[in-house]
């Protein structure tokens, strides 16, 4: 494990904790994309099927996988719960969440069928999950750009999530040079994902770090 990987994983962890804390402490779901959160459940469930094949890697690896599956499910349950407790806020959230996810799902499936390490169910689902993860934040970014404003904690959530994938890139350089290991699918999808975030990072830098509110173009 190198520092980039550790800090990458930590920022991924932080992003999820920030989101859960946002929902629980502010008692609001305003500005959160249900679709993006639903996609993450699908991503973790399809990626970590290897938990069932008992291909044990390490304690850390298993715990993190279980945490990502559990926490993504928990977030969806929290959002779903507001359907009863806060029907108006729930309806507003769903109404604002207009991104067509079927294109992301279809596109990821096509890419997974074209690019995978083996034409088997597990390998295709793994590939599907990395392609889908590279674009899963789009409904959330789309929502943000439409409303033009967002709660600062939602912004920090997206920032931490983007930071996680960005840190994985130097991690792969490290692993290539130090360990001689390389994974073309992970690297390509990781770069796609970081590019998706790059516009957001730019606006984050301009607006949040130099003061003022946030509004995506």
């Amino acid at each position: 494990m190198n520092l980039f990987r550790i800090f990458g994983d930590l920022s991924h962890l932080a992003s999820i904790l920030i989101l859960i804390r946002t929902i629980q402490t502010t008692d609001t779901i305003d500005g959160i994309s249900f679709k993006t959160q639903g996609l993450y459940v699908l991503i973790f469930l399809t990626r970590y099927l290897d938990l069932l094949t008992f291909s044990y890697v390490s304690f850390y690896n298993t715990i993190m996988k279980l945490f990502f599956i559990g926490s993504s499910l928990y977030i969806v349950i929290l959002l779903q719960r507001s359907r009863k407790t806060k029907p108006i806020a729930y309806k507003e959230m769903i109404m604002a969440d207009t991104f067509k996810v079927q294109y992301l799902l279809g596109g990821s499936l096509v890419m997974a069928l074209l690019f995978n390490y083996k034409f088997s169910l597990l390998e295709i689902l793994w590939s599907f999950s990395v392609w889908l993860e590279s674009v899963a934040i789009l409904p959330q970014l789309f929502m943000l750009s439409k409303s033009g404003k967002a709660k600062s904690l939602t912004i920090h959530y997206i920032f931490a999530l983007g930071l996680y994938r960005t840190l994985y890139i130097p991690n792969w350089f490290w692993r290539y040079w130090v360990e001689g290991k390389f994974d073309k699918l992970a690297v390509v999808t990781g770069i796609v994902q970081t590019l998706v975030y790059s516009d957001f990072f730019y606006v984050y830098y301009k607006k949040v770090l130099t003061g003022g509110g946030l509004g995506l173009p």
């Binding site: 990987r5 994983d9 991924h12 290897d50 291909s55 890697v57 390490s58 690896n61 993190m64 996988k65 990502f68 390490y117 793994w126 994985y168 792969w172 692993r175 290991k181 390389f182 994974d183 699918l185 992970a186």
Partner: peptide, 10 residues
């Protein structure tokens, strides 16, 4: 051959 990066990363 198992792809080590796919195998041990998250």
């Amino acid at each position: 051959e198992t792809n080590i990066i796919k195998h041990d990363e998250l």
